[in-house]
């Protein structure tokens, strides 16, 4: 079995292009939701942004790499991703919002490093997704280590409480991502991934729960997406990640 070779420089090119595109052009599925919501300022913002970023907070660059197990990426992968971010920030006039240390707070000046998430998947392709996340909404995320006895009612109460605390500070209408299950760190990860899901939930039980939570929040939301994961007999972790209306992401398959 031979491995497909991909030069990490292709990763740099992809990240550079995807990061700028994500900051300037919303995905069609997000636009459709915002047309339905109907705030004219927001529609004008994404229809006529004049080739500058939709939002001044061009985020911390979250870069998701779904790496086929039959791929050999040659070169320094984190360095290649950061070089893509650096190039995007310079060529796309994006904002440098990253400080090198959380307490000493020196801006790195080029918005690096990116937050990189890698996942091994079958196949010989690499799917690259760049999802810039501003901190107006990121600051509104919460985790609760609920107990099995809290059950579905506990989950609903926590989601609604978190969503109501998020607006109007995070820019409404928001996309509400909910992670249920896993452990402390996995639940945060799946809540954040849930925000980016397109299309309906394939599990009808969770699709119904999404609809119920959306009905309760639709004055200020464009949707509720849930991702669930196996968990422990003693636990019911729940996390809520808020995506602002500038719900930015772009993907490419190498």
């Amino acid at each position: 079995m031979s491995l497909r070779q991909i030069d990490a420089r292709r990763l740099t090119d992809a990240v550079a292009e995807l990061y700028v595109r994500a900051c300037l052009v919303l995905p069609e599925s997000v636009k459709a939701k915002l047309y339905a919501f109907g705030n004219p300022y927001i529609i004008e913002n994404f229809e006529k942004n004049g080739n500058i970023p939709l939002c001044q907070d061009t985020g911390m660059a979250a870069v998701y790499l779904e790496v086929g197990q039959d791929v050999h990426l040659t070169g320094d992968i984190p360095a290649a991703v950061d070089e893509g971010v650096r190039r995007a920030v310079k060529e796309g006039y994006l904002r440098s919002s990253i400080v090198a240390d959380p307490l000493r707070r020196q801006n790195t000046g080029d918005n690096t490093p990116a937050a990189i998430y890698t996942e091994l998947v079958p196949g010989d392709r690499v799917k690259v997704t760049v999802a810039p996340r501003g901190f107006g909404c990121e600051n509104k995320a919460r985790i609760a280590m609920l107990t099995p006895a809290d059950g579905i009612e506990g989950v609903k109460a926590f989601v609604l409480e978190t969503a109501k605390m998020a607006v109007p500070d995070a820019c409404p209408p928001v996309m509400i991502g909910v992670g249920i299950g896993g452990n402390f760190d996995l639940v945060a990860h799946i809540a954040k991934r849930a925000v980016l899901r397109e299309g309906p939930n394939p599990d009808s039980f969770y699709a119904a729960l999404e609809q119920e939570l959306y009905e309760a929040t639709k004055k200020f939301s464009i949707g509720v997406n849930i991702l669930a994961a196996p968990t422990h007999i003693a636990g019911l972790p729940c996390a809520v990640s808020i995506g602002c209306h500038s719900l930015r992401y772009a993907s490419e398959v190498l």
Partner: peptide, 25 residues
């Protein structure tokens, strides 16, 4: 209006840094 930075930029006619240039944005 939150998240509408592109739209709001249209109403700014001039911009000059007047203090703390070391802070960048």
């Amino acid at each position: 209006e939150g998240g509408c930075g592109a739209l709001l930029a249209n109403y700014v006619k001039r911009c000059d840094v007047v203090a703390f240039p070391e802070l960048g944005t």
